[in-house]
Design a protein around this nucleic acid. Sequence first.
DNA 1: TGTACATCAGTGAACGCGCGTTCACTGATGTAC
DNA 2: TGTACATCAGTGAACGCGCGTTCACTGATGTAC
Lengths: 201, 201
Amino acid sequence: MPAHTHPTRQVLLDAGLALADEGALSTLSIDLIVEKAAVAKGTFYVHFRSRADYLVALHRRFHGDLAAGIRAASADLAQGGSRLRAATLAYLDGCLAARGVKAMLLEARGEPAVAEEVAASNERFARAAAPELRALGARHPAETARLFVAMVAEVALVELAKGRRNTSLRAALWNLIGVAPRWPGRGVGTHRRPLRGGAGP
Amino acid sequence: MPAHTHPTRQVLLDAGLALADEGALSTLSIDLIVEKAAVAKGTFYVHFRSRADYLVALHRRFHGDLAAGIRAASADLAQGGSRLRAATLAYLDGCLAARGVKAMLLEARGEPAVAEEVAASNERFARAAAPELRALGARHPAETARLFVAMVAEVALVELAKGRRNTSLRAALWNLIGVAPRWPGRGVGTHRRPLRGGAGP
DNA sequence: TGTACATCAGTGAACGCGCGTTCACTGATGTAC
DNA sequence: TGTACATCAGTGAACGCGCGTTCACTGATGTAC
């Protein structure tokens, strides 16, 4: 049995995500984790070298699941608004369904142990979004993508606080980047509304 | 001498901001603070009731200074793009000059003790930005303002990592909200480029 | 089939450390008379 | 002016607690012969 998929390891990660949903990441102690997972404290160190190691694994799992959902929802679509929209919806709805969102999205950025990991995830998302935004006519696709990822994370956090989708906030997001908040009449095409190109005289 | 402005209190807050610049907020211990401030440990509790109390004060001071700079830079301008631009520049340049930015902007959101405070600050900024965005033609000014604040914070963090302004990132920001990245030729007016109004067909 | 040994996840008591907080005390300054 | 007392910022040793980590051990399973 590969160490990576060992059931006890999964149980420990499950416990961590559940606990991260209830409290701050900084209060996620090994005592709490093993209590929730119903294993002995020593078992924790059979599967993880340290708390930092565990937090990284936790974040990888969270973002891995999220990314898989996004790929499944958007892989078949044509580049541009419709794919970006589908991917974003998958991200937001995935966050609403996931556990530990606040911890993984927000607090993890402040934990030195996981900061790099979070930065890498955000960069991956941004790199995926950039060509879509370029297709929509953005003049600085990479930079716009970075801002877009930040906005989507903000939407996720706001929705998390209320526990449900925030339609007008999502509408504001789509307006900013020039994608129709609802699918166009029908068909595969994107509702294209190119971004403003440049900015000033 | 009012407790609020007592010199030792300021020294303790100064020390905290300096230390927050070096390490994570979670590692900002009272031992470190009093060592940096060169006072006895007990003195800390003369001025603050608890660590949580101190963190709130630290955040208030950080955002108070920043907000003062923003007001000074933008109070005289007319509503709309030019004021929003001036305020944002003051925010971003203020962050580049300030200490403890990462801790106050990012990590503080994850610390239960300061989370409310951060939410309140962000809301204040968003409330200030909303009428400007409305003047620019945003259909969901309040929501757009919230996203705008998130973007500006992201820009601040990116710039902080490099230690200097990121021109293309700022340009992408202005493009998204439809404000010219540079002043128009001359004069007081805003370079108005209304946001796209709605989105659907 | 039976015996000896290797492997490895799991156990939980124990350790040491750093933390936030407390408290009895000091010493300087101000006030009353 | 001198004496007694009140106030209050400052001190630093001490406390207790919770934390991450270690380690000698257990018990089940697999393998060799």
